[in-house]
């Protein structure tokens, strides 16, 4: 929350784009029924409140269901990721956070419901359009997902070589700028298996950045990192977001850069998030700008954001 764009007080309903976040407001009039096979009791703590962000949503989930075998992961998920903000998708382990990300980029398809990116439905896209759409995304995988047969430099240069007509010299300039930004300028010739987990993540970050995507997704960037490294990575995320916001404004891009971070680490959420979606049992418990969420009186949110053992969330 260190830059002005996220600090501006959201004005409820100032965007009439019909997105759930803008339209619903904090008070919900009709409460959605629990998903098939679940009791109202299990969803008693889901207040489904959405505090207005004052921005349009670039990614929207609309009553999305997804199950793997008997495992129901998304159970009527309705969620928005507001434009130009660093959003967090927070939730206990195994609530379908990573599955959410895979739905956004079309690696998974919902059983029912819809996922829209910049207003267009992802499940309805033909393959060619899907590949085009994915260029708007940068995705940082849990372990970086670097190509093990290529060195760091080639890994980061890969998207540029694949999708642009840039000369090797231009590519080198961009790649080295990004590698230096994430602090890996000196290890450009190393292979991924010669790097530590944290370095692989940062390299994955650099690769996700080179095409200057509209939307950057982070799949548990803090997993397997110590608290200091996690804090540093959080700072790096904020810094790069700020820089991309400035660039996007200068270039008058149609969409402001949006970051979405999936995590269960509350500390980094407190430090980094402008907007928080709290996910539990395949649905949003509450969502809204970080301040509203930290002041929320929902018992689940209070328990989860404070990291306490007492509360609605138990081991089972």
């Amino acid at each position: 929350m260190s830059f002005e764009d996220s600090e501006g007080t959201p004005i409820a309903g100032d965007l009439a784009d019909g997105s759930p976040a803008a339209a619903a407001g904090p008070e919900l009039t009709t409460r959605p029924a629990p998903p098939p096979g679940a009791s109202e009791e299990e969803y008693a703590n889901h207040s489904y409140k959405v505090y207005p962000s004052g921005r349009r949503n670039v990614v929207e989930f609309d009553n999305t269901y997804k199950s793997f075998g008997r495992n129901q992961i998304l159970r009527g998920l309705t969620m928005g990721i507001p434009e130009g903000m660093v959003s967090m998708i927070l939730g206990p382990s195994g609530t379908g956070k990573s599955v959410c990300i895979k739905h956004m980029v079309g690696l998974l398809y919902p059983d029912s419901g819809d996922v829209r990116v910049q207003g267009e439905s992802v499940p309805d896209m033909p393959d060619e359009q899907l590949f085009e759409m994915r260029k708007k995304f940068g995705l940082l995988f849990q372990d970086g997902a670097l190509f093990s047969s290529m060195n760091l430099y080639d890994n980061v240069a890969f998207p540029l070589r694949q999708h642009t007509e840039k000369s090797e010299q231009e590519i080198e300039e961009i790649v080295m700028r990004r590698l230096t930004e994430v602090g890996l300028g000196y290890s450009r010739d190393k292979l991924p298996n010669e790097l530590s987990g944290g370095m692989r993540k940062r390299a994955g970050f650099a690769r996700a950045l080179v095409l200057e995507p509209d939307i950057l997704l982070f799949d548990e960037p803090d997993s397997g990192l110590d608290p200091v490294r996690t804090a540093l990575l959080g700072e790096l995320i904020l810094e790069i977001h700020r820089e991309m916001m400035e660039d996007a404004k200068a270039q008058k891009k149609p969409y402001l850069p949006t970051f979405a971070v999936v995590t269960h680490d509350i500390m980094s959420a407190r430090r980094v998030a402008d907007y928080i979606n709290v996910l539990w049992r395949g649905r949003i418990v509450e969502a809204g700008p970080a301040q509203d969420m930290l002041n929320s009186d929902n018992p689940f949110i209070r328990q989860f954001l404070a990291g306490e053992s007492q509360g609605p969330l138990t081991m089972d």
Partner: peptide, 11 residues
């Protein structure tokens, strides 16, 4: 290692 997913996401 999610390399295949990464490939797909990179178009």
């Amino acid at each position: 290692r999610e390399e295949l997913d990464a490939l797909e996401v990179l178009g």
